[in-house]
């Protein structure tokens, strides 16, 4: 029930400019009808506004195109076949206004006009509206959840000049069990209430690193330090080490044997993946001594 009232609230609150698609593909009135076939096919669209400068001249749809074909398909300009009487909305109209009009009109694609300039500034479909509503609801729901469960508030409650949470994990076992350590870390970070994107990135870093340790060194350890501004992860092993640290950062470079590849790993994407997920990454390795990977995920600015 609360969800429905929230939706009702939103349809009155949100304006079309908040939900409309801004970069709209349009065609010019002077284009030939026959050019539309390729446009509709390659762009997978079923219609496009016809623009004269930034002024809306009409709309040409796939129905217009089919009608033109069945009438013989004699070459002519789009402006002769487009629908000129087009229903439009203003960008400052509310969603509820648009939804009611859509219901009555029986079709679902409306150009949006800027009230000040009179030019077309976007297009709206039922899909856009629904997507925007869902996004709003999801954000709301997510904020609600964070408020309720966020254990990371712990930092705000602790009185100290510096506070840090430290988790330690031992990495060992068969490669087929890789992921147990990262799974534990993921659950922990989730429980602390971090943004899902932060949790996911940290989990992927841990998982790739854990897999690397199990493949190359058999065992190692992972230390995760959670601070108010960042999650710092250090994964160490006493394995054979990496002869050329730059080389292993290249996507696709791999030293993995077949049995590793059979498990879906060893494609040479591990370290590049880690780098992609972290805000800072440092890889140190000495041949014969071992490898140490440090990765940091910034938690001040969720993406």
């Amino acid at each position: 029930m609360t969800e429905v009232t929230k939706v009702q609230e939103l349809v009155y609150e949100l304006k079309l400019r908040d939900v409309m698609k801004k970069d709209v593909f349009s065609v010019a009135p002077g284009m030939q009808m026959s050019e539309l076939r390729e446009i509709f096919r390659t762009r997978r669209i079923s219609g496009a506004p016809v623009l004269d400068g930034d002024r809306l001249a009409g709309i040409i749809s796939i129905e217009d195109f089919i009608r033109w074909l069945s009438d013989g398909g004699k070459e002519c300009r789009i402006s002769e076949k487009m629908s000129k009487r087009v229903e439009t909305f203003y960008s400052d109209d509310t969603l509820v206004h648009a939804l009611n009009k859509m219901e009555a009109a029986g079709f679902g694609r409306f150009p949006i006009i800027d009230r000040q300039t009179g030019g077309m500034c976007g297009i709206v479909t039922k899909g856009n509206i629904i997507e925007a509503l869902l996004k709003e609801l999801e954000i709301d729901f997510h904020e609600e959840e964070i408020r309720r469960y966020r254990a990371s508030h712990i930092f705000e409650d602790i009185r100290a000049d510096k506070s840090t949470l430290i988790f330690q994990y031992r990495i060992a076992g068969e490669l087929s069990e890789a992921g147990t350590t990262s799974s534990g870390l993921k659950t922990t970070l989730k429980r602390l209430g971090f943004h899902p994107d932060i949790v996911r990135r940290s989990a992927i870093i841990a998982y790739e690193a854990e897999t690397n340790v199990l493949i190359n060194a058999k065992e190692g350890k992972m230390v995760v330090r959670v601070e108010p501004a960042e999650i710092y992860m250090k994964i160490e092993d006493k394995g054979p080490g990496i002869p050329d640290v730059e080389k292993v950062m290249e996507p696709g470079f791999s030293t993995a044997p077949d049995w590793v590849r059979e498990l879906g790993f060893g494609a040479g994407m591990g370290l590049p993946n880690i780098k992609k997920c972290s805000d800072k990454m440092v890889l140190n390795s000495t041949v014969g001594k071992g490898t140490c990977l440090e990765a940091t995920v910034d938690i001040r600015q969720p993406q």
């Binding site: 087929s176 069990e177 890789a178 992921g179 990262s182 799974s183 993921k186 996911r200 989990a203 992927i204 841990a206 998982y207 498990l263 879906g264 790993f265």
Partner: peptide
């Protein structure tokens, strides 16, 4: 089972 782990992460 790595598929499940990957899916989980």
């Amino acid at each position: 089972s790595q598929v499940i782990r990957t899916a989980e992460m």
